[in-house]
Write a protein that binds this DNA or RNA. Structure first.
Lengths: 352, 352
DNA sequence: CTGAAAGCGCTTACAG
DNA sequence: CTGAAAGCGCTTACAG
């Protein structure tokens, strides 16, 4: 270990300015309370010494003495900066970076977290978690026990995405898929669609359940009847559409929906002429044969920014008062009308 | 400021295990030197207490006591996580993340650095730079005075990209463009090309100079004669090629080269049938009309990994001994042959 | 208004 | 082999 080169400290500043180290600290932190009132002259002298000696406070010492750090931890359960993960993490990281710059905090990525017992863990022996004032958790899937431990230890953190890995009250900022799903279904119904297929991945995540739930209740209310189809049955879609008289197919997300379209066009069907199509996920950048895919815009940048803001609130609030905060927030995805929902062929006209 | 919830400390572990706090520290850090020899029994007792109490050392205290942190700072002179910057930063960040995971260190992004006096500065009043063991600097353009100060303060850091912003000996890992440029020109000459155009952006960065220098010396040696053309003259390229008899055009980078191709095809010229084309930069993912663009593969992931490894060396080496280290390294870009360099039309045949 | 002192949680000589 | 003590650089009661 190399000898840590000594930096200029408050003590030296104090000597230069001819005051005590305490006074330097007071000036530095603008402590001008009831019991302390430092005359402008002293203050100026100290400030000048600080300037002249290019003093910078040691963050470790500040932290140890109990102050906050302006450092926010970022933990992802998988690599966040690889090309493959950019689709999902890119907008989130972008939103985090911008919000961090605005708030004035640094971002500590816990890239070290080793794989132990088969899963990446936030709590390893040498975790630097405590160095951060709080932590943002990113990832499609999180570990319930770790979320629980964070809650139990009253460590400020916010998860991105609605969580159900634990019964503990996990602070999160997630995405409201229900409202836009209802809107999109209403629009489809208004366009004359009565029978549709919903193609899903069969996952059991909160957002997957949300979307499926909205679809099912639209179906139950008779607004638009759905047949739910697992992704493994995509090849059968042309047949299923014919058999049910469906005039529309909705996919759980854009990528899945692109597979759906491939299956349809392979069977000689044309989109949206023969079948209207939509995805219950981000569709920006997704086009099909010149048509903009109908679906949602998911404001991930804003979600990340909102998560950081919520985290700041938690950090400056005493844990005692956390229950009074609104710590579970949803940002609404917006409907992107696109060009792939068209008026349904009138079934009555078929018979005429 | 909320009351910092108390964490379990070494003192408590010591009480549980019935030893002194010093012993706990010794066990924790595997201090088994000449003067200390802790019997296995004690050691086991302490370890069990640590386990049971889920003790994690306070990184701030460790740091303050003079140990290293396993935290590497990352500073970029512009936002690194925005979609626009992903082209350049993406591969670097990916390489950093992977190397950090392997080495076991966390990455502290100095996203806070505010804009002061018109430029983003690493040294602001509250910089957390000192919290990191060392720092990686990323960016096309850096500030010479800050590089100089880092050198003067003997703070371990490594810049990505060859630097010339200061006369100080800046540790860096950069890219060797000269070797592959020579190779590419040799290949072009071997394919019969004798006259070419080099389209550049007129920048004065080290890598721009390297490329231009290699082009000029090839020209001077008679291997392949070049006319150097600024990017503003791209519209004139068809005329210039005809006037000079050039059979090939090389662009400084792939994006510029794509503009070149647009200009040529707009004039009714075909690539590579009428003119061979290459770029002196990363060409992966760049195709032109079904042809893979000839140029380089720039191993940015490896550059980032090498930078982190060099930084680790600096960190564990006493600054006294830094001069003995090879702190300025170049990784060679590789030639990607592509499909856009074809045999030159034989000028003699023209006359026959 | 200002300073001496205690304490944050750790490491490392230094004595037993 | 093990512990008491000093010190890392800061903040914050607490006395003057």
């Amino acid at each position: 270990m190399p000898s840590k080169p000594r930096r200029v400290t408050q003590r030296e500043i104090a000597q230069i300015a001819g005051v005590s180290q305490t006074t330097v600290s007071m000036v530095l932190n603008d402590r001008d309370g009831t019991n302390v009132r430092i005359p402008e002259a002293t203050r100026a002298r100290v400030k000048q010494a600080i300037e002249q000696a290019t003093y910078v406070a040691d963050p470790a010492a500040r932290r140890l003495a109990g102050l906050d750090n302006q450092i926010v931890g970022v933990f992802t359960y998988e690599p966040a900066l690889s090309p493959e993960s950019m689709d999902f993490y890119g907008p989130l990281l972008n939103g985090l970076e911008r919000a961090a710059e605005r708030i004035g905090c640094d971002l500590l990525f816990f890239t070290s977290s080793p794989v132990e017992d088969g899963t990446r863990s936030l709590f390893h022996r040498r975790t630097r978690l405590r160095l951060a004032d709080g932590c943002i958790l990113l990832g499609q899937q999180m570990v319930g026990s770790e979320l629980g431990r964070l809650v139990a230890e009253q460590f400020p953190f916010v998860a991105v995405g609605r969580r159900d890995e634990t019964t503990a009250a996990v602070p999160y900022v997630g995405i409201d898929y229900v409202t836009p799903t209802n809107e999109l279904i209403a629009a489809a119904a208004a366009a004359g669609h009565q029978q549709a297929l919903y193609v899903h991945r069969g996952r059991d995540s909160p957002t997957a359940r949300d979307r499926r739930g909205a679809v099912e209740s639209a179906s139950a209310s008779g607004q638009l009847s759905f047949l739910l189809v697992g992704e493994e049955r995509i090849p059968e879609l042309p047949r299923l559409a014919r058999a049910t008289g469906a005039t529309m197919i909705i996919g759980e997300d854009a990528f899945l929906t692109e597979d759906v379209i491939l299956s349809l066009t392979a069977a000689g069907l044309s989109v949206p002429a023969d079948l209207s199509i939509a995805a219950l996920g981000e569709v920006r950048g997704h086009r099909t044969d010149g048509h903009a895919l109908a679906g949602f815009h998911v404001p991930r940048e804003q979600v990340a920014a909102a998560a950081l803001e919520l985290l700041q609130q938690l950090i400056i609030t005493d844990p005692q008062s956390w229950p009074g905060l609104d710590t579970q927030r949803l940002m609404r995805a917006e409907v992107e009308p696109g060009d792939t929902i068209v008026t349904a062929p009138n079934p009555d006209q078929d018979g005429s």
